[in-house]
Amino acid sequence: MFKIVHAALIAPGIKRFVIEAPRIARKQKPGQFVILRLYEQGERIPLTIERSDPQKGTINIVVQSAGKTTHFLNCLETGDHILDVVGPLGKPSEIKNFGTVVVMGGGVGTAMTYPTAAALKAAGNRVISIVGARNKELVILEREMGEVSDQLLITTDDGSYAEKGFVTDKLRQLIDHGERIDLVLAVGPIPMMKAVADVTRKEGIPTVVSLNPIMIDGTGMCGGCRVLVDSKSEFACVDGPEFDAHRVNFEVLIQRNAMYREAERRSMEEFRQLGTVKLKALRQELEHACAGNGGRR
């Protein structure tokens, strides 16, 4: 079992967890993720590691409530435990001096770009970051991204903060102003990554996206995370999660990610009907289960 040493909301529905996981903290590199399972009946979900502290033996994850598991996770507080956390998984981001790199984060995807942006900056790149969110409240990691970027640009869909528009609008502006861009890294909702790929393909700018297909084991066994890359099946857990955006078939990714929509809706509905009293009981049950398993491991 894995202890949550700190949990705090950083935006509505978005929480940062600091989790005790010394083995993972020691090995984590930018771009890698963990898979976690909250309780015995739980599913395994992949989440990107925002950063780690090898000395303290902790890793950070940033979680946005979306389905049942993330909603449940975001109900957990400092001192609670998670049954299973495994990682770091996937290939690390390629870090070298590319020249000028544009790092684009959409929504909670910003947290996933942060460690790579920091490493790219440290490797001598000129880093221009573009952070996008639906509205002002959902803009996350503004300070952190500012610290690792030569230039930080922010957009909100509704214009409630910084500039109204999409991250691709900003990218377009940079290109139109003659900015020489050697690499684009985009992490966010699939439509956003696809839109970025469409812009940079025409310009011939190498572009990397971090994909989030349905995944179960995450260790190169089940094949559930296959993505169509140049009409060939590749696996996000061992070949990715980062791929050349211009080779990814985003339509198939969207289609496959919708495969369990009905079951996900049902799970979520049942979870909503739990109420706070039952949720508290469930948390205690989880503690109990974790403690029991902790003894066995």
């Binding site: 009946q41 179960i216 066994m221 094949g223 079951a263």
Partner: peptide
């Protein structure tokens, strides 16, 4: 893939959905 289909059922108990979270 058979590995995914069987992993959902065997490891993740998808046949016991929604008592278990993993869907099929």
């Amino acid at each position: 893939s058979a590995n995914e289909f069987l992993t959902r059922i065997n490891l993740m108990h998808a046949y016991e959905f929604p008592r278990y979270d993993e869907p099929m």
